[in-house]
Design a protein around this nucleic acid. Structure first.
Lengths: 150, 150
DNA sequence: TCGATTGGTTTCATAATAAAACCTATTACC
DNA sequence: GGTAATAGGTTTTATTATGAAACCAATCGA
């Protein structure tokens, strides 16, 4: 292998996103971070990931600006991994993945965790809309491409 | 390596989704499929992926029910890879990834492809709402967990 | 103060990936 | 109809990424 091709320069925003968080573990770490985990050992226990890999992924996520290391508590030596604003902005990605999984990867009666509004307990869903607020489906959209430089 | 840990049995729907489409190439293939690509060679050219890997990924995506092989045209021998309904349901995931990439991985003046409503040209966005239609943010949500069996 | 825990790094074996060569069945061309 | 090119792969081989386990320094708890 000559190294994974980078999509940094791709004009497609989805491709660039996948370049950053499209590896096997990163989004699972982010999911746990949304879930309130902050410590190395917590992630390790939750994911069952090898420590060297976790170490590498956390370092990368920090360097990409998705997580940040902050001192835990007042004047403590220990540090915590926390989502940055950029990391918290991945929330819709997590919700979309969750929604798809719920719909297609669970039996009807199978138990699952669920994402609900804190105050009401109502399930959360996700809508695709135009800027002016009308909900639309995939067939009503089109991708405007940037001309490829030759 | 003993093989990548499967998350098939995880109670978290996001984890199961990542188990299926969380590898490096699958979502890029799905993106291209949304973009209208159907042929082996088209995917290969678009992604610059090694043919053996593409072959493996297409086979897996078909076996998972995300793509299907359909005869191209009337009575032709050739076949095409097309998104199933399950595959098309990944649309919100793609939109969420796109939206995040646009926000965080492009310079303000940098050119990018964009997703718009076909009829109006209006940009598409994504909303998180409760079942009854109120838009909410990540901080107003909580994940209800399934008790882990010991 | 001493043992356990935390948060890693290093080492080593193995699996996944990529590149290139190769193969077979169509398809296009003359 | 014969021949070359194209499509759609598979096989082989080299390299990288991953995972498990051992190891280690610093901190924490008793």
């Amino acid at each position: 292998m000559v190294g994974r091709r980078s999509l940094k320069a791709d004009f497609c925003p989805s491709a660039r996103s996948l370049d950053v968080i499209g590896d096997w573990w990163s989004l699972l770490i982010v999911r746990d971070a949304f879930d309130g985990l902050t410590r190395f050992g917590e992630f390790q226990k939750s994911l069952g990931i090898a420590k060297n890999i976790l170490s590498d992924r956390l370092r990368t996520l920090v360097s990409r600006g998705i997580l940040e290391l902050v001192p835990a508590g007042t004047g403590a030596v220990r540090q915590e991994y926390r989502l940055t604003e950029m990391g918290r902005d991945l929330f819709p990605v997590m919700v979309a993945l969750r929604q798809w999984g719920e719909r297609h990867l669970f039996e009807a009666d199978e138990q699952r965790s669920s994402l609900v509004e804190r105050d009401t307990g109502l399930p959360v869903r996700l809508d695709i809309r135009t800027q002016d607020g009308r909900a639309i489906g995939p067939d009503e959209t089109v991708i405007l491409k940037v001309p490829e430089p030759e």
